[in-house]
Amino acid sequence: MTVIEEFHPDYLTLHLDGRFDAHETPQVRQSLATHTPKNVHINLEKVTFLDSAALATLVQAMKNCRERGGDVVLCNMPQPVRIIFELTRLDKAFKIINTVHDATQH
């Protein structure tokens, strides 16, 4: 999976591309630990699959951001990812937005 970081004054956007699984979580955790952003927008448009380790990484990121007074916003969820979030009921826990542009309004 590739991770592209895009820096903005108020938030960090991570564009993820590929299979987001336990092999790939360290680079996402590293990015978040390095920049300690208050707000993170995660673009999932090109993610083909997430496993439980990836979900745990996103939950931890959400907790960390909320402790700093910010949040994680998930954008551009493809259908398989949306269904995985629904089945794990994490769709209730996260802010989920249609596009990266919409996320900037939050």
Partner: peptide
């Protein structure tokens, strides 16, 4: 559960 989600979707 994530595997079921991916399978069901596809």
């Amino acid at each position: 559960v994530p595997s079921i989600g991916a399978i069901a979707s596809y």
